[in-house]
Design a protein around this nucleic acid. Sequence first.
DNA 1: TCCTAAGATAGACCCAGTCTAAGTCAAGAA
DNA 2: TTCTTGACTTAGACTGGGTCTATCTTAGGA
Lengths: 136, 136
Amino acid sequence: MSDLLERLRSRGWRLTSQRRVVAEVLDGDHVHLTADEVHARAAERLPEISRATVYNTLGELVTLGEVLEVATDGRAKRYDPNAHQPHQHLVCSACGTIRDVRPTGDPLAALPAAERFGFDVATAEVTYRGLCPDCA
Amino acid sequence: MSDLLERLRSRGWRLTSQRRVVAEVLDGDHVHLTADEVHARAAERLPEISRATVYNTLGELVTLGEVLEVATDGRAKRYDPNAHQPHQHLVCSACGTIRDVRPTGDPLAALPAAERFGFDVATAEVTYRGLCPDCA
DNA sequence: TCCTAAGATAGACCCAGTCTAAGTCAAGAA
DNA sequence: TTCTTGACTTAGACTGGGTCTATCTTAGGA
């Protein structure tokens, strides 16, 4: 995580205590927090941090390519710090738990030219849905 | 489309003018309207139809399996009447246009058992993103 | 240490969607 | 054909997630 802060600083990111706390909250594997959850956890360490700052910081991290935005349900977006390793998501239809997964092959390759309608196709996101062991 | 109304009636669906208009608005290929767009088009034919009724009717059509809910951006959900033919979506990153596409193979097959974390995986949704011919 | 533009803040605001209480009506019964 | 009733519709209040704005604070260079 200090790698992340180091990378950001070297890109001219002004380092504030708020930004540091948000970045720290997003550390770990299979982390997919909503903005409100990030805010709550950040506020444990820095009680006066505002919602707007959390949204701003998350938005910047997404723009910088350090964090992915994931919208697996119609509800709040989730933020995934695992941005440097290509992966897809497996979501429990009952409890909403999310796991990062790596399918075999490139999902982009499954779309033949005839099905591209002249689009310049760049990415493919796959969301697998099912019941997790706890909910099954 | 009258097939649809017939199917619904035979399932005990009470047929009202509002429901008929909503179902008619959703007819066609590559149709992916938001609830507000459905409401606007329905209101052209039935000016006093309410937003709540449109939401209720769309929700019922989704529950009955006649319409799919699609959330390709973080904004409003879209409703896709092409529910009886399995397909995925190709979205323009610039203008948001959506096309139904059929990739080769079954995306579910690409997720090995070792990557399923004990989940009972049921479906895979793929969203392809890129620039459409008009925006490229 | 000082300065200043970048960043943070509170809270108003917006949009998509849900809920509620009251009124309306489709369709089966008589 | 009319009656009846519970399913359906309505307006509008409300909620959750997110954005915007005006003002205040501060990181970090001079």
